[in-house]
Design a protein around this nucleic acid. Structure first.
Length: 256
DNA sequence: GTTGAGCGTT
């Protein structure tokens, strides 16, 4: 617990959130932490990343413990050139729950707000606005749109060619850690993309021709299955041929 | 390998 909690926000009770914009897409929290930590006590550094692509959106949130330090960091780090790009540091206007915050700090704790609203005046909260805010911002930048459509097109093309996308769950590249954590960054597999068709070198005679019939319903375990479900009319032979004969029936995803 | 307005998560 010493480090920044990997599960959600550690504590926003007395922390001041700073919004860092105009940063490079390659900039990670590990790069921003030392810069911000030098000007004050950084509680947490969070970089929102895309759900699908997983790439950084180009901005980050830095939470300070004190307002004065946050203010100083804004004045000092604002306009600082990082990775060849000037990042804009400013106080966050909205909190994680779409709450209005002043100077990066929430005016009143969420727990107190709920308790007070329940005790004082039970005003009906319209969750529609939350849904709207969370789902209406799907297209916020044309660049992302283009990139999104582009990768979709490439996906379809790959499927038609049946190139047997032997992509590891690690996406074959260094997975960007939205959170600041030195622990996991210490260990890293030296050899990851040695041979793309390495799994294909496995002889089929050694493996049972029939996989587990109990899980025959789970055809594929593509990472984009949620985006575009594969047609059921696909021949079982095709999937059995391109799919890795791993005995693992249903991967519990890579949620960490 | 690309892009560039904006406000956030187990």
């Amino acid at each position: 617990m010493s480090h920044f909690g990997r599960a959600g926000p550690p504590d926003i009770r007395d922390t001041y959130s700073l919004l860092v914009l105009n940063i490079t897409f390659r900039t990670t929290a590990d790069d921003l932490f030392p810069l911000f930590d030098k000007y004050g006590k950084v509680v947490d550094v969070f970089i929102p990343r895309d759900r699908r692509t997983g790439d950084s959106r180009g901005f980050a949130f830095v939470r300070y413990k004190y307002a004065d330090e946050a203010q100083k960091a804004v004045e000092k780090l604002d306009g600082r050139v990082v990775d060849g790009r000037e990042m804009m540091v400013q106080f966050a206007k909205y909190g994680p729950n779409a709450e209005r915050i002043h100077k990066g700090r929430i005016l009143e704790p969420v727990e107190k707000l709920k308790r007070m609203s329940r005790s004082r005046s039970p005003r009906p909260r319209y969750r529609d606005e939350y849904r709207d805010r969370d789902y209406r911002r799907r297209s916020r930048s044309r660049s992302r749109d283009r990139y999104d459509r582009d990768r979709h097109r490439g996906r379809d093309r790959d499927r038609y060619h049946s190139r047997s996308r032997s992509r590891s769950p690690d996406y074959g590249k260094e997975r960007r850690r939205g959170r600041y954590d030195y622990e996991k960054s210490r260990s890293r597999s030296p050899d990851r993309s040695g041979s793309p068709t390495h799994h294909s070198s496995r002889p089929r005679g050694s493996v049972s021709p029939h996989q587990t019939p109990s899980r025959s319903r789970s055809p594929v375990a593509l990472d984009d299955k949620e985006r575009s479900p594969p047609p059921r009319s696909v021949s079982p032979r095709r999937r059995a041929d391109s799919r890795t004969p791993s005995p693992v029936p249903s991967n519990a995803d890579e949620q960490m």
